[in-house]
C-alpha cells in the first residue's frame, strides 16, 4: 500500500518557495510515496503549476480563497486539516512559515509533530537534531498514527522540475477564522541572492562594529562573489544587520557551497546554522576562536585589512 503524503506549499503568491521542492525530496525518501502538494492562495494558478512541475509530485490541490491573499497560520491550518483525513503524512518546511503553521495543523488533527526532519529511516522513523544540533535523535511514530512533520531544508536537495502533475481545485469547506489580520510585511528589497538558497554566503559578526562598517566591509565582497549576506545574532542585536540575515539556531539554517564567517567567534548557536555548509572559511583575529574548529580554511588577522585585500584579489 502506498504512503499518501500531503505537502503544504510555501509561496509568496507568485513564486513557489524552494523549501517546497526540498520537502518533496524528503517525502520521496518515504517508501511508496504518493505525493500531493496543497497550495493555499487567493489565485493559485501560477504557484500550482510550479508545484505540478516538480518531479515526484502526483497531484496538486489548489485551495483558492480570498483569505489566502496573505498566508496566516490559523486560516491555512483550518484548510489543510479539513483535507488531511486520507493522508498518512503531512509535511511542511522548517521555515518560519512551516514552523508557524504545521504545529497548528498537528493539534487540529490530534497528532504529534516531528520538527526538523533531517533524515527518513522508514515511513514511521525519522532523525532530527535537538540541543542546537548537538545531538541527533531517532524518533518512531506510533503505528497507524498520522505523521506530522517539518522538513529541515538544509538536509535535502530541491526536487528537480520536469514533472506535470494534474492540478485540482477542490471546494474549500473549512471555516476560516477572522480573528487574525495581516497588517504589513517589511520585505527587505534586495537584488542579492537569497540567504536560504545562495551557493555562497558572506557573514559578519560583532567585530564589524557598526551598521556602516558592516555594509561597507561586507557588501562589496558579497557582490564580487555573487554571495548572499548573513550575520551572527550579536551583529543583528546590535543593529548592524536586519533580523532576516541571522544565521543559527534561532535564525536561518543554511547549506551553501561556501560560507565566509568574518569576525564571528563561532558560538554553538551560530554553528548550528552552518553545519551543512560544504566549505567554511573563518577570518578572525583571535587564533583560539572556536570558529577555527569547524573551518576548512582559517585566516588569523584583522578583518579590516584582510577583506579589502581579498576584494582586490578577486577583482
Amino acid at each position: 500500500m502506498s504512503n499518501r503524503i500531503l505537502i503544504v506549499a510555501e509561496h509568496d503568491g507568485t513564486h513557489l518557495n524552494a523549501s517546497t521542492a526540498k520537502c518533496v525530496t524528503c517525502a520521496m525518501g518515504i517508501p511508496d510515496a504518493e505525493i500531493t502538494v496543497a497550495v493555499c492562495a487567493a489565485d493559485a494558478n501560477a504557484v500550482a503549476s510550479q508545484a505540478a512541475a516538480l518531479t515526484g509530485v502526483a497531484r496538486v490541490l489548489a485551495l483558492e480563497h480570498p483569505a489566502n491573499a496573505h498566508l496566516l497560520a490559523a486560516a491555512v491550518a483550518a484548510q489543510i486539516a479539513a483535507l488531511a483525513g486520507p493522508f498518512n503524512h503531512v509535511l511542511g518546511p522548517s521555515t518560519t512559515f512551516g514552523k508557524d503553521v504545521m504545529p497548528r495543523i498537528a493539534a487540529l488533527l490530534d497528532a504529534a509533530q516531528i520538527s526538523d526532519i533531517m533524515a527518513v529511516e522508514s515511513a514511521t522513523r525519522f532523525r532530527r537534531p535537538i540541543y542546537a544540533g548537538n545531538a541527533i535523535v531517532t524518533v518512531e511514530v506510533e503505528a497507524g498514527a498520522k505523521v506530522l512533520g517539518t522538513v529541515r531544508t538544509a538536509s535535502f536537495q530541491a526536487a528537480p522540475t520536469g514533472g506535470s502533475a494534474p492540478v485540482e481545485k477542490p471546494a474549500v469547506s473549512a471555516e476560516i477564522p477572522a480573528h487574525t489580520r495581516f497588517v504589513s510585511v517589511s520585505a527587505a528589497s534586495s537584488d542579492r541572492p537569497d540567504l536560504q538558497t545562495a551557493a555562497r554566503v558572506v557573514s559578519g559578526g560583532r567585530a564589524l562594529g557598526s551598521a556602516e562598517a558592516f555594509q561597507k566591509t561586507l557588501y562589496g565582497l558579497a557582490d564580487k562573489l555573487h554571495a548572499a549576506v548573513g550575520a551572527s545574532r550579536a551583529a543583528v542585536d546590535a543593529g548592524y544587520a536586519p533580523n532576516e540575515l541571522q544565521v543559527g539556531q534561532t535564525g536561518k539554517i543554511i547549506a551553501p557551497e561556501l560560507y565566509l564567517a568574518i569576525g564571528i567567534s563561532g558560538a554553538i548557536q551560530h554553528l548550528t546554522g552552518i553545519k551543512d555548509a560544504r566549505t567554511i572559511v573563518a577570518i578572525n583575529k583571535d587564533s583560539e576562536a572556536p570558529i577555527f574548529e569547524v573551518a576548512d580554511f582559517g585566516l588569523v588577522g584583522d578583518l579590516f585589512q584582510i577583506i579589502p585585500e581579498l576584494e582586490r584579489l578577486l577583482a
Binding site: N134, V137, T138, E140, V141, I280, S287, G298
Partner: peptide, 18 residues
C-alpha cells in the same frame, strides 16, 4: 506518541587548515 529510539552525536566536521 513519539518513541525516542536512540541518540547520536552529530557528524563532526573535519578541522581544516590555516
Amino acid at each position: 506518541r513519539l518513541k525516542l529510539v536512540r541518540f547520536d552525536p552529530p557528524a563532526q566536521r573535519q578541522k581544516g587548515i590555516k
